[in-house]
Design a protein around this nucleic acid. Structure first.
Lengths: 198, 198
DNA sequence: GCGAGATGTTAGTCATCATTAACGAAACCG
DNA sequence: CGGTTTCGTTAATGATGACTAACATCTCGC
């Protein structure tokens, strides 16, 4: 009915298009605050058509979170293996996380709010990837500061994530070109302070 | 039926008891992920009894967020007016925010996730209180660093909130006695770095 | 002792929503 | 072309959940 849409070249794009729209909606209103109809509407199809692409709402969320955490983890691994010294590695880790936070604020938001709504086979896997991601950071920090206990490094890492992921809240305060070095400098300084215990 | 409960000395406590339980549930599963029945069950009453205390689920959330943001704002005002120099004031602001984040992680979580579910008369007021709270911080920071543009101070403030409010994620990594000075040192260093632009 | 108010309870009601069913049409394959 | 796959559509269906109604009970002020 809706004229000749979808020129068939949308081969695998529908899925990612749906995932993108759903991420925005979930970030804005929460998983349970968004209906299947809302998600479909956001990409121009309506309601149950989603079931041609995903087996259900929870499966859609699971794939979304799995995608985010594995992308993050992969980029961290890439940075760490390609590395020169640990100081440059830390810099690169900061840069990738900042880029992600600035470019995909919706994904960042969903990533640390909605894990509880993922059903169990996938949840464990996502948690595992998240843990591995944190451990990449902790390992690099431990190389830089071997005398600092791991628990403190882990706590500091979480705090830095909080700092960097605050961008969804401060959207619009500064242009991204200014935000990027600001976040980098703040995070670096915070890490230094965390490690130089008293 | 349920024996002789509620010795009548629970005069205004039921409301706050309900608000506490609801905060924990909302923090864990999100506003739409929690039913009226769940909230009632968490305080030993069941379901529609809540309507004896609140006019509805959204009103309950509104009162919760209003309470949080006005408490935060009040404590900031108290700190600022009682102040010696700006440096001590900033320290005191950090301490109150850290105390709040460590002692009431559920409230912190709800506070920056669920504003979108508050209906409109109250939402504006909560936003206003949040804005005023941020401005208390920005004012103090501006006294300390007059040459730094306000937009940058605001962005830095949001980033520091992200850092301090990360405690719900890092729960259990360190005991609160260790967490408190760690967060304080990290936040202080991050602010210094933010202000010493390049 | 007794009406009133406060606080609960259980049984509807009415929406919303995820999911399924049954059906259509375009594109691709042969 | 004719059949199959792909991607949509619009009706059910069945749960769940917010809110209302009708009905106790308990404590108090008097």
């Amino acid at each position: 009915m809706t004229t000749a849409r979808t020129p068939t070249r949308n081969r695998g794009n529908r899925r990612t298009e749906i995932l993108d729209a759903a991420a925005r909606l979930f970030a804005a209103r929460g998983f349970h605050g968004v209906s299947i109809e809302d998600i479909g509407g956001a990409v121009g199809i309506s309601g149950p058509a989603l079931y041609r692409h995903f087996s259900g709402k929870e499966a859609l969320l699971a794939e979304m979170l799995l995608g985010i955490s594995s992308r993050l983890r992969e980029s961290a691994v890439a940075v760490v293996t390609a590395s020169g010294g640990p100081a440059e590695t830390l810099d690169a880790l900061l840069n990738t996380q900042i880029t992600f936070a600035l470019e995909q604020p919706a994904l960042i938001t969903v990533h640390d709010r909605e894990l509880g709504n993922v059903p169990e086979p996938a949840r464990r896997q996502i948690r595992r990837l998240q843990r591995l991601y944190v451990e990449e950071w902790v390992t690099v920090l431990a190389e830089l500061h071997p005398s600092c206990p791991a628990a403190r490094l882990r706590a500091a890492t979480h705090a830095v994530f909080g700092l960097l992921n605050s961008t969804p809240h401060s959207a619009g305060e500064l242009p991204p070109e200014a935000m990027r070095p600001l976040l980098h400098a703040m995070a670096r300084a915070a890490i230094e302070a965390a490690v130089n215990a008293r």
